[in-house]
């Protein structure tokens, strides 16, 4: 029986990998060849025929060397799935949402102010911004879906802009209550409530509406158009 590892080493010479990694590849392929050979011998094939049949698994060793080198060194997807399906669409949705808010404020749109109680913080809504947010949510959902995101990831991408605010308020609320010795607790609670509604809940719903509608639209289109073979 030949020394399979030596055979693979010779035939794959020039494989440009680190020495340890190269040895791993040689060893792995050698085990495969050895098992193929042994299996053929067990089936009753003579040594020479088993050897020929085993080696016939590789028509062109130089081609295999190239293929292995590409597979082990070139990152096919520079960005992994999570980046393409969530972070990128989410950050673009965030940028668009903030851009829209900036525009709304620049063009002097007055916010709707709801007075909750005398002397306590108020709820502020920029109606044009809230009306435009479904577009941003739809963009996030579209980009995420196009990258192959699941329904959960698609919806997370569309509401991505409010997630940082949500996290901040979830931390800031309880912390504020703990450290607000000098302030009345009801003021802190009202502030927490109003900011959560104004900056998380209301925009989140607006974004979600856009994301949900986009997902619905894409699902309906894909069910009528079938699978693309790109």
């Amino acid at each position: 029986m030949p020394d399979w590892q030596e055979l693979v080493r010779k035939r794959l010479s020039g494989l440009k990998l680190g020495s340890a990694e190269r040895e791993e590849v040689h060893a792995e392929l050698a085990v495969h060849l050895e098992e193929s050979y042994e299996s053929l011998r067990t089936k009753g094939l003579p040594e020479q025929a088993a050897m020929q049949q085993t080696l016939a698994q590789v028509a062109d060793w130089q081609d295999l060397r190239r293929e292995i080198q590409i597979a082990r060194t070139v990152k096919e997807n520079l960005m992994n799935d999570r980046v393409r399906q969530l972070w990128l669409p989410g950050l673009l949705t965030f940028a668009l949402s903030m851009g829209l808010l900036e525009l709304v404020q620049k063009f002097g749109a007055r916010p709707i102010v709801l007075d909750l109680d005398k002397g306590t913080p108020v709820l502020m809504f920029y109606t044009p911004w809230l009306l435009a947010l479904p577009l941003a949510g739809a963009l996030g959902a579209y980009l995420s879906k196009r990258a192959g995101g699941s329904a959960r990831i698609v919806l997370a991408s569309s509401i991505f802009p409010v997630l940082p605010f949500g996290v901040v308020f979830m931390i800031a609320g309880p912390v504020g209550l703990v450290i607000s010795h000098s302030l009345a607790h009801h003021i802190v609670t009202a502030a927490f409530f109003s900011m959560s509604v104004g900056w998380v809940l209301a925009p989140g719903i607006a974004l979600l509406v856009g994301g949900f509608l986009m997902q619905l639209l894409i699902s309906r289109r894909s069910s009528t158009h079938g699978i693309s073979m790109s």
């Binding site: 590849v25 392929l29 495969h32 295999l64 292995i68 096919e76």
Partner: peptide, 23 residues
């Protein structure tokens, strides 16, 4: 799957993080 078809495929799938190989 011949050896030539299988291993480049396995290495690509490992790079993508779909499978993990260990000795």
């Amino acid at each position: 799957f011949t050896l030539a078809a299988l291993y480049p495929m396995l290495y690509r799938m490992e790079q993508r993080g779909w499978i993990r190989g260990a000795w």
